[in-house]
Write a protein that binds this DNA or RNA. Structure first.
Length: 751
DNA sequence: TCAGCTCACACTTTTGAATAGC
DNA sequence: AGCTATTCAAAAGTGTGAGCTG
């Protein structure tokens, strides 16, 4: 029986380790779901786990599962942002996402209970910078941070519940605080991310019985920032977010108002100072300097008075008796403010115009979205920006560079907007505002490529210009997984008990398409393959076929962590060899029953969530022990991590041919763009189990998204309330889970 | 020097308790 | 007494801009 083991500590943050335990129903004692070390993984597992229940060759298919559909209710809004290049503010205290994820679920069994999870995974291995009006990859990504999952506060709830309302994840918060103890989702600034929503069926309170459906809405990808870089995004946010209403043109916190306030403030100060300084005219004032109180009162009194344009006393700053004070500066500031005001006014006028244009653009875009087309302005990582070889880009320049941005005035060379149009439009069932991911059981097909730009009012996709050279087709063939050799599939010794999110999504027996040329691969799909906007393989040469074992394989048996905080990986590139892991002392609040496992070599080597992952240089998945294992799982299952469970050809969304999971733009340079993807995961546990015994080196397959273990733990508890009690974040005011809970998935060890 | 981050600020919406009215 | 509607204040969510940091 599986249950989610959520430690109150999600609040604990990254420090939590080894918190994934297996609980045998008959044996209440906590058993590590997976041995801390790859080596002992199999040994430490109950036989039952080692011999997982046979997985049906065909995904457990309950018809209903295949029918599960999720729509992004505010898709149009997302597309507006995406067309500009969505930015999400992250702060230390945590910032909500805007737009938020508003979803509609259907196809669930009304009587079954489901858990909804939100996680956010890196889209690539690059760090970005806003230059020249666009986002450009400027280097390798930062070490991967602890993965956390936001659990919808309503979870677990019945299918009827989920389907009866709009599901919102607006309570989820993003932070850049790596030591965050609030359980917020930790992200790096200036990195690209893709939110994912997982629907996990909880057959009953006791077990994760059914399967898992994962949904990805490409238009929801974003770049994290600590301050907005693109003015258009700022405008969009202000115009769209009610909380930012005050910053609108007519708001009290608009630039005009703020300038006016500042002007008044300065005027008041100036007057005050002027008065004080003017007082030199009155010798008595010099002798008797007004007390602070008097000054304040004076200031207050003056505040209500109109600014004194010109001190009649003839006071000259340079002659002021208080040279150190800055009457002059203030005066200048005042004048400057006046001038600034004027310029601002003018600027505002211009800005208004510009704003109007933008707004119009937005409207147009919005309208155009009505015709399900939108562009994503995210740039593709520069070829050499990443230290890791990435899959070769078919025709990066042709595919994206030329993309005519809706706003020509704002060159975004690096960020060719992406056109998703055909994908969305092609689906009859899709409304302009809602996209329905197709659900495929075993294979993914690539979405139909956008029609030639001619059909699009505003051809945003440059690439689309030449259908013949359709980048989408090229993807499968020319783009190989961006897996770095160093991230090669874990050696045979690597058997991780860690369940990666990716692995969760993969069905053991699922036949995953190999990206290059597999049946049902994008290439196979007539122009179905849609290259995800941003994923441009930096280094084509380095690209390797998915199946091809990555060059340097990283044995799971890494040097014992011990007290040392750095690891050297001989097989990995020098730049990636030295990994520093902050010694994070476990929070006192952290209750890790199996903490002892940490002592074990592997565990030591891979403290699950306490350490940063040098993902930047290394594709996440592979270096993570869990990832290793995940790969092995997948391999054993004959699946590529990237090849998430493919939707059964479901038909749920005809317009969206099933997309191979590998298509998810992570390290796959040219993963076909998928508007949405549904992954069906019939049986989680079996899958994991199956992988354990596998001794054969996993192929160098990597999940499109970095894989990380979900902290889904088996729990014998007979009552949902018990196991899930831990899922909920403890709130200060005694609200159990008013705003959802977070699940730390960082079992992923060090990497 | 500069890009990026943090923080305080003013404004807004949201939320929940208190109060009034029926 | 119980319920509903309204009011109010506190909390929380916004972007901004100055200042700090590396």
């Amino acid at each position: 029986m599986l249950s989610v083991e959520m430690f109150p500590g999600l609040a604990l943050g990254p420090q939590r380790i080894g918190d994934c335990f297996y609980r045998d129903q008959e044996a209440p004692a906590h058993l590590p779901l997976f041995p801390p070390t790859c080596d002992v993984s199999a040994a430490g597992l109950p036989p039952r786990l080692l011999a997982p229940p046979p997985v049906p060759s065909e995904p457990t298919s309950k018809a209903q599962k295949d029918e599960v559909k999720m729509e992004l209710e505010n898709s149009s809004l997302w597309k507006q942002f995406s067309s500009v290049g969505t930015e999400m503010i992250i702060t230390k205290k945590g910032r909500r996402m805007f737009p938020g994820l508003r979803l509609k679920l259907s196809g669930l069994n009304p009587s079954l209970r489901y858990i909804l999870l939100l996680d956010i995974v890196p889209l690539d291995n690059s760090r970005y910078r806003f230059q020249g009006g666009g986002w450009q990859a400027v280097g390798s990504a930062e070490a991967r941070l602890p993965d956390r999952v936001f659990i919808h506060p309503d979870s677990p709830a019945t299918g009827a519940h989920w389907q009866s309302r709009t599901i919102s994840f607006h309570y989820a918060k993003l932070t850049n605080n790596t030591l965050d103890t609030q359980g917020h989702i930790i992200l790096h600034s200036l990195h690209r991310y893709q939110p994912r929503v997982h629907v996990i069926e909880a057959r009953d309170v006791l077990r994760w019985g059914g399967g898992q459906h994962s949904f990805v809405f490409p238009e929801t990808q974003f770049i994290t920032v600590t301050a907005y870089q693109n003015n258009k995004i700022t405008e969009l946010k202000i115009n769209s977010n009610p909380f930012a209403k005050g910053f609108r043109e007519d708001g009290m916190n608009s630039k005009k108002q703020r300038d006016a306030r500042q002007k008044r403030k300065i005027a008041v100060l100036t007057e005050t100072l002027d008065i004080e300084n003017c007082d030199p005219c009155d010798s008595t004032e010099l002798l008797q300097q007004p007390s602070d109180t008097n000054t304040d009162l004076q200031a207050l009194a003056l505040a209500s008075l109109p600014p004194l344009p010109d001190p009649s006393c003839g006071f000259r700053p340079e002659e002021a008796s208080y040279p150190d004070t800055q009457p002059l500066d203030l005066g200048q500031a005042f004048m400057a403010s006046q001038m600034t005001d004027i310029s601002i006014t003018m600027a505002n006028g211009m800005q208004d115009t510009a704003g109007s244009e933008v707004a119009n653009n937005m409207i147009e875009r919005s309208d155009s979205m009505a015709e399900p087309a939108f562009t994503s302005s995210f740039p593709a990582p520069p070829p050499s920006s990443s230290s890791f070889p990435s899959a070769p880009l078919p025709q990066p320049s042709s595919s994206f560079s030329s993309l005519p941005s809706s706003d020509t005035s704002d060159p975004q060379p690096s960020i060719p907007p992406i056109d998703y149009p055909s994908l969305l439009s092609s689906s009859p069932s899709l409304s302009a505002a809602a996209t329905t991911p197709s659900l495929q059981q075993t294979s993914f097909t690539f979405p139909t490529p956008p029609p030639s730009n001619s059909s699009s009012p505003q051809p945003l996709l440059p690439s689309s210009s030449s259908p013949s050279s359709n980048p989408y087709h090229a993807i499968p063939e020319t783009i190989s997984p961006q897996t770095d050799a160093s991230f090669a599939a874990p050696s045979s010794t690597c058997h991780s008990g860690q369940m990666s999110a990716q692995s969760l999504l993969i069905q053991p027996n699922q036949t995953l398409q190999q990206e290059p040329g597999g049946n049902g691969s994008p290439s196979d799909q007539s122009s179905a393959a849609f290259i995800y906007p941003n994923v441009l393989p930096p280094n084509p040469d380095s690209a390797q076929p998915l199946n091809q074992p990555a060059a340097p394989t990283l044995p799971c048996s890494l040097p014992a962590h011990g007290a040392s905080t750095s690891f050297t990986f001989p097989s990995v590139p020098p730049h990636a060899q030295n990994l520093s892991f902050p010694n994070v002392s476990p929070s006192p609040a952290l209750h890790l029953q199996n903490l002892s496992h940490q002592a074990q070599p592997l565990t030591a080597a891979f403290p699950p969530s306490s350490f940063a992952h040098p993902s930047s240089s290394l594709p996440h998945p592979s270096f993570q022990p869990s990832a290793c294992l995940a790969s092995s799982f997948q391999q054993s299952a004959g699946t590529h991590p990237q090849n998430l469970p493919n939707p059964s050809s479901s038909s749920s969304t005809p317009s969206y041919p099933p997309v191979e999971i590998g298509a998810i733009p992570q390290f796959n340079p040219a993963p076909p763009y998928r508007p949405e993807m549904v992954l069906h995961h019939p049986s989680l546990l079996p899958q994991l189990d199956s992988s354990l015994p596998s001794s054969t080196p996993p192929p160098s397959l990597y999940p499109a998204f970095p894989s990380y273990p979900l902290r889904l733990c088996q729990d014998p508890h007979s009552s949902l309330s018990i196991p899930f009690r831990h899922l909920y974040r403890q709130h200060q005011h005694g609200h159990p889970h008013p705003q959802g809970s977070y699940l730390d998935m960082s079992t992923r060890a060090v990497f």
